[in-house]
């Protein structure tokens, strides 16, 4: 280690870990690692998306009927909330880059609030599904058209995909709390803000998943009259 003296004091998060030669190398490794992690996430969600595509093609009418029971205004509102949170997240990274420490905390807190708002709306939507017996399982009922069995498949995928997405949001909110705490102690500087930047990538990825979920689940056959079926 003698020839590789650490740049920062040991224990500080910005300290250079022993396996790296330079801070740049350390940051490059984190960035590549994060992107590879996001690729595994793409493939993970990909399994659910292909299931959706296959069954949407097979049971189009029932899927349209089931999709019509989702609340488009709430979905649109939530999409807006999530896009706002992506902006505040991008601004948090920006504040770290320009070294505005109090702004980092502010934008991270805003991101957390918006994330919580999204989850709150999701709770309202889920509660509505329970009320109408649209939750897959023994008590599932569907009278709004199409084949109930296939509509149940739609709702299985709806809960699977939005549930997994919400789980990612919840995990993200937990990490945000840690980041806010650390940021308030002034840990992140223009020289070292890798955690904020990496978390930003994660948060934007979760946003992208929703960008696809929203039209696929909510806006399916919006132009078709309820229960009619299209093709």
């Amino acid at each position: 280690m003698s020839s590789h003296s650490a740049h920062a004091t040991a224990g500080h998060p910005a300290a250079l870990l022993h396996q790296f030669d330079t801070a740049d190398q350390q940051k490059d490794a984190s960035t590549l690692g994060m992107w590879l992690f996001l690729i595994t996430e793409i493939m993970f969600f990909g399994g659910l998306f292909i299931a959706y595509i296959v069954y949407r093609n097979a049971y189009f009418d029932s899927f349209v009927a089931a999709s019509h029971t989702l609340n488009i205004p709430l979905g649109t509102f939530n999409t807006t909330v999530l896009i706002c949170s992506s902006l505040t997240m991008a601004m948090a990274v920006h504040s770290a880059q320009v070294g505005n420490r109090s702004r980092i905390v502010l934008f991270l807190v805003l991101t957390l609030i918006l994330g919580a708002a999204f989850l709150g709306v999701k709770v309202i939507e889920y509660a509505d599904k329970f009320e109408h017996h649209h939750v897959p399982g023994p008590s599932f009922q569907f009278t709004e058209g199409g084949n109930p069995k296939n509509a149940e498949l739609f709702f299985s995928l709806y809960f699977g995909m939005t549930g997994l997405h919400a789980l990612h949001m919840i995990i993200g909110a937990g990490i945000l709390l840690v980041l806010i705490f650390n940021a308030s102690k002034g840990w992140y500087t223009p020289e070292y803000y890798t955690p904020v930047e990496m978390f930003g990538l994660y948060w934007h990825f979760v946003d992208i998943v929703w960008i696809f979920l929203f039209p696929l689940l909510y806006l399916l056959g919006g132009h078709l009259p309820p229960g009619s079926g299209g093709h």
Partner: peptide, 19 residues
């Protein structure tokens, strides 16, 4: 990740009897 989500789906299907 793809086999992970597939096994997850099998598990969910087994637990909640969804198809």
């Amino acid at each position: 990740p793809v086999v992970a989500v597939t096994i997850l789906l099998v598990g969910v299907e087994r637990m909640f009897r969804i198809g």
